[in-house]
Design a protein around this nucleic acid. Structure first.
Lengths: 379, 379
DNA sequence: CTGAAAGCGCTTACAG
DNA sequence: CTGAAAGCGCTTACAG
């Protein structure tokens, strides 16, 4: 407002268009290289303080902003980091993205978004993204089987960090991931502490590294109590709410008439957990009275669900931060960083409580799949 | 794998480092400009088809990828669009982001992420983002009061499109937003059709344009039925689940003992709706038996809530698509595009049904804030 | 330490 | 239509 409706920046002398370094140098009465060095804070500069001040003042007054393209052409530094994501709708990955973005900003870097599926489908996009010297490095969300296979290829062209899902060892790829084992161990110990002795699990694909680590944490906690997770109490599938719903329905079917049926079910992630809460309600099971439910990952929605969902949070924001920091610090490839600080944090909520007394009353949920209305409720 | 562990690309002749246009031209036996023109599909090129093919083949074989910095220096086109977002955790904005990203990709553009709060807090970041010729244009999520004030400033420097929240008319800014009025009208008509006659509303800030438009849609539908939304049945606040929770608690307090109390409450967005479902449960109100709840925006979580949440979806993905398309088409500033196609879509789910018969039974919810367990449920 | 010169890789007026 | 030349704006060896 109050400024002329033009895309040009206020200018000096007769030349129109954006202010260049040369304009600043001229205005400050110094050479172009010196202006560049002062502006970039080169510690080797010995110019008088007032000269430096004059350069800074001129740049400020003229509204000088370096042309990032020219800079990157000369110095082959773009100030951009590529972030390759799977699924922009998942609240889980978003935390990671937020952390990466914030840390990038701290270093005056910006993030360029890439989508796994699209990069896989469009070879040109893939190439331009990776090799167009468009970005100085890449952060990839691991755990996408097909894309993981190409990460090594990317890492040969650019510094690359895979976050969140450990993959095969590699000489070129750096990996940053949270302590998955500690997380599910913590969740399982919470349930053990409440008195549960038999557990169900609905989680991601059987071959997923993340699934394996999470099952490992559960197994470790159970082993300490001389218990184990039976094969028939596990369901593997996609990391989605729909899969969570289907998974619990399947488990309930398997448990039919079993007086020793599990009293607590762990969800491999929050989406699965949300689906399980829906399935429980649809099947006429009350959570937590009939069944405790707990999930990996704490998201904004966890505490607002009915019942509020017990979760364990992994430091995803910090994983994002660490990934970018590692990338920019020039850490050599092949490093594997398991983030143990901050540790996973338990968020006990209404969806978990002590187990029901299955011995006393026979277990027989409503046969109908519809939850009965609460009898008119507050009327 | 199988490739040498080096950041260099396979090369031609003695020169190391990435393949340049000159390398391609040489390999194809043409001049640099001609190679450039062929590669960029310049229709004016009259070279023999086999010459063109030789250039393309050479580029492909050598793995040529243009240096985007050099290109942008010369042609002042960066191939990047800035996307300025408020809140990376909101599932609502994500749809918009997904659409913008997909459309950008279709034009071989990538998205650079900016964060409203950070750009406001860090003047340098703001300047570099806006004026570093880092991006060719900017898409801004409107509705952030403080940032909206600076949009005009941005639009003077770069083509700018504001999405999702109409702001003041402007000569420079282009706006793209969905038909908010039609959406809440549709939602309200759904509730009217079920038999509801008095309504509550928990929505965003009173001065928010989006709030105003959504209230306008409700008012329009009610006016058709010779009804109106009373002032005392509205609560304004942030667009968050916490605010939804607090809002419904407040409404329930106001309705205490009112035999004519509203039987349906509209949530200004899904986050608010989620908070309301939680509040209803905590207050011992059954949704939909005691109260119907419906919300604006359909997200992945809507159908998985308990009860599943009735919503109206706005074409946010398409808003993102249109924003980018408008930006790249060079549409002059000042254009306002209200997206009426696709129209809002109603998703009727379990959270809405016919109103309870308030006349018959006196309304008196459980005094305790705790929902009673379902009496042992399936035991 | 500083300045004059070179050059990053590309595209686009400009001649031919 | 095509090629030789220029030049986008910056930073960095290289002399001094």
């Amino acid at each position: 407002m109050g400024r002329p409706a033009t895309h040009d920046v206020p200018r000096q002398g007769s030349r129109s268009g954006p202010v260049r370094l040369a304009d600043v140098a001229q205005a400050a009465g110094v050479s172009r290289p010196l202006a560049s060095r002062v502006l970039n804070g080169d510690p080797a500069v010995r110019a008088a303080p007032e000269t430096k001040a004059r350069v800074l003042e001129a740049a400020d007054r003229l509204g000088y902003v370096p042309h990032v393209g020219a800079r990157s052409l000369r110095s082959s530094r773009t100030g951009l980091i590529g972030l390759v994501v799977h699924d922009l709708s998942s609240p889980i990955y978003l935390e990671l993205m937020r952390g990466a973005r914030a840390e990038a900003a701290r270093h005056n870097y910006f993030l360029v978004l890439g989508d796994v599926d699209e990069l896989l489908a469009d070879d040109d996009a893939f190439t331009i993204f990776i090799s167009g010297r468009r970005v100085d490095g890449i952060v990839v969300q691991g755990g996408h089987g097909e894309f993981d296979l190409r990460v090594d290829e990317i890492a040969h062209a650019l510094p690359t960090v895979v976050v969140n899902a450990p993959t095969a060892e590699s000489d070129t790829v750096t990996q940053v991931f949270p302590d998955e084992v500690a997380a599910t161990r913590m969740l399982t110990e919470h349930l053990l502490g409440l008195g549960h002795r038999r557990f169900g699990l609905v989680t991601g694909p059987r071959r997923s590294t993340t699934s394996l680590l999470r099952e490992k944490g559960i197994a470790a906690a159970l082993a300490d109590a001389s218990l184990e997770l039976r094969e028939e109490d596990r369901v593997h599938g996609p990391w989605t709410a729909d899969a969570g719903r289907a998974g619990l329905v399947e488990l309930i079917r398997r448990w039919d008439g079993d007086p020793q049926r599990p009293t607590a079910v762990i969800a491999g992630n929050t989406l699965i957990g949300i689906g399980m809460l829906g399935a429980a309600a649809a099947q006429g099971w009350s959570v937590p009275a009939d069944l405790s439910v707990a999930a990996v990952h704490d998201t904004w929605v966890s505490e607002h669900l009915v019942p509020a969902l017990t979760t364990v949070s992994l430091p995803l924001y910090d994983v994002g931060v660490t990934a970018v920091r590692t990338l920019l610090s020039g850490t050599p490839g092949g490093t594997r960083i398991e983030l143990s600080d901050p540790p996973p944090a338990l968020h006990p909520r209404a969806s978990t409580q002590r187990p029901p007394d299955l011995g006393r009353a026979r277990h027989d949920p409503h046969p109908s799949g519809i939850e009965k209305p609460a009898g008119g409720g507050p009327s």
